[in-house]
């Protein structure tokens, strides 16, 4: 038998799909800027306890005499400068924003992971087995998606009460359906390819075929939906907290900080709402910019 002179494959590292995608992503300056911004925000949020000038949850550190100071004022008791002012309880806004980001990102991140897990399992199962199971699951998804997310979340939180865990649960229930639908639609395309038949022919267990063979080929659209949805999750959590059904008052997220300052907006104390608002907007913009670019890069139709 002749070993044929195969077309020399291009050098493996350059050719790997992941590297190509990273290289393409880097071509867009705005997206890179967004990514850097997001990473900075994430680091700030994670490091909050070490870099924040004050622990906003520790009431003994607060001085009511410092209440509602404008940005740049110096504390009455200590010589600490409040860069972004204070709220009505004398809480340093910069510290409150850092801690608030932490809560917001944590809630969004955890609910994202849980929702992706649930949605992926449901979506791949529906696509793989097809038939009635698929129809049933997708009708449930349709039903879920036909209600506005905020409405479902409000009802759930009204029933469950407040608490970080309950907000996460509500976000998962609101969001799993998006992932289920995304995964199903790409899995249903992959399902028809011969490699799935080959795996069935090799008598591999269904679970293995679904999660080792099908799922890895459904990841790109999932990443895109995840970036859009995490921004949605942050915004939704902020909305819920703003409306007073989200996180508890003792652990304010960005939404709750904005709500706290809302009453003072018209009295000229703009900073209590404005700065958490800017932090929220920057975070969401950064994630959306990254998500948009990822969608362009990962969309097979836009490639040669």
């Amino acid at each position: 038998m002749t070993t044929h002179p195969a077309a020399p494959p291009r050098a493996a590292p350059v050719d790997s799909p992941t590297r190509r995608i990273i290289a393409q992503f880097m071509e867009d300056r705005v997206a890179v800027l967004g990514l850097i911004l997001f990473i900075c925000i994430a680091i700030l949020a994670l490091m909050a306890p070490w870099i924040a000038p004050q622990n906003p949850y520790d009431l003994s550190q607060l001085n009511i005499m410092d209440g509602a100071l404008p940005p740049g004022e110096v504390s009455f008791g200590t010589d600490m400068t409040y860069m972004l002012g204070t709220d009505q309880q004398g809480r340093d806004m910069l510290s409150a924003i850092l801690y608030g980001l932490r809560i917001s990102l944590m809630v969004a991140g955890v609910s994202l992971l849980l929702a992706i897990t649930v949605g992926t399992i449901v979506g791949v199962t529906a696509a793989y087995f097809g038939g009635r199971l698929d129809s049933f699951i997708m009708r449930v998804v349709d039903l879920q998606l036909s209600f506005p997310a905020i409405l479902i979340a409000l009802i759930l939180l009204a029933l469950l009460g407040r608490g970080v865990d309950k907000v996460i649960l509500a976000l998962v229930i609101v969001q799993w359906a998006y992932y289920a639908r995304t995964v199903r639609s790409s899995a249903i395309v992959e399902r028809r390819k011969d490699y799935v038949d080959a795996a069935r022919c090799l008598a591999l267990p269904h679970r293995r075929i679904m999660f080792r063979h099908l799922l890895p080929n459904c990841v790109p659209p999932l990443i895109v939906v995840a970036t859009v949805q995490i921004a949605q999750a942050i915004a939704l959590e902020a909305t819920l907290s703003f409306l007073g059904v989200g996180v508890p008052i003792t652990e304010p997220s960005l939404g709750l900080l904005i709500a706290n300052g809302y009453d003072y907006l018209l009295s000229g104390r703009y900073w209590i709402s404005l700065f958490p608002g800017i932090a929220l907007v920057l975070t969401i913009i950064a994630i959306n910019v990254v998500g948009d670019r990822l969608r362009d890069v990962l969309n097979p139709r836009l490639q040669k």
Binding site: D194, D197, A198, C201, N217
Partner: peptide
């Protein structure tokens, strides 16, 4: 099932691109 195997037509789509 293992005793009866199949070799497919399209050599690209019959191999999982991520493995």
């Amino acid at each position: 099932a293992l005793k009866v195997q199949m070799v497919f037509q399209d050599p690209m789509s019959s191999l999982n691109p991520r493995m």
